[in-house]
Write a protein that binds this DNA or RNA. Structure first.
Lengths: 145, 145
DNA sequence: GGGTAATAGTTGTTTTTGTAACTAACAACA
DNA sequence: TGTTGTTAGTTACAAAAACAACTATTACCC
């Protein structure tokens, strides 16, 4: 049926990973977008702070590999909505410490619960071993291995 | 070390998939971008035509799940650069058949070779069985299962 | 100390994307 | 035929991302 060769886009890992990433992000995206008006970078930053507590924009960047301009703007949006506070480091006045406000914590807890549920639902289609292996492989591919 | 709970962003599938997708796309992206000035949607459309031969924008959309406006614009760019030709279907004059020009074919063959090589390199870190399982799982997650 | 380089984060400008509304062609059917 | 609905693809405008240049502060080192 297909014209030439045996190359299949559907087996090309970068393509397949992108499709899986997009599809699996959709349902979760709808929640943080419609419920809190957050952008993708927003919830990621929020989660980093929710998980690790106070950190600087730089530290978030190191962990997430999100570009600093995206982080800067996400922090602005989150600060405007009083989801986090920024306090200058007095030892190094270039950087500032970011920390969730109670309101930010509440959003984090809510989204985190949804994330856990959603992750469980995705994982339910596979066995325990398959899930473990998948994560190992993805971490390796992500350069987090 | 971490402040609260045991939730780990690094295990959340949508996050992990995105990181893996981005990281694994980087090297290939550099090639099609720097060598041919193509965008992500451009090479995908190009590959669909390279693999399946003549098809309409709609058919590409059905297979790839790329939105029709993105396809429309990619087709425009590819047509401008004479990588493909558009011919109206005389039976249904709303749609047109897209087909790679020899120049487009050449680009496709080049990129396809690079894609195959690159995919092989990525796959080399895993066993045969692991690779097979990974693709099955990703296809399922991508809704292509 | 003074000059140069590095770092944290921000801002401005250009590309790309997302969304919705649109055109043109066809279909269905009274 | 005419009316209404659908489909293929495009265009316009708003939202977001990418990239480069910028400010402010600290570090290095002669």
């Amino acid at each position: 049926m297909d014209k030439k060769g045996d190359f299949e886009l559907e087996n090309f890992l970068p393509f397949l990973l992108n499709q899986a990433a997009e599809e699996s992000s959709l349902a979760f995206q709808r929640v943080y977008k419609s419920r809190y008006g957050l952008l993708r970078t927003d919830w990621r930053v929020l989660f980093h702070l929710g998980i690790h507590g106070r950190m600087t924009a730089k530290e978030i960047g190191q962990r997430s590999k999100i570009h600093k301009t995206k982080i800067s703007r996400a922090v602005q949006r989150l600060a405007e909505r009083r989801f986090l506070t920024r306090t200058r480091d007095e030892r190094d006045r270039r950087s500032e410490h970011l920390e969730l406000t109670p309101a930010g914590e509440a959003v984090y807890r809510d989204l985190r619960g949804i994330a856990e549920e959603y992750d469980a639902k995705l994982s339910a289609q596979f066995t325990r071993g398959e899930n473990a292996l998948l994560r190992v492989m993805l971490r390796r591919l992500a350069g987090m291995g």
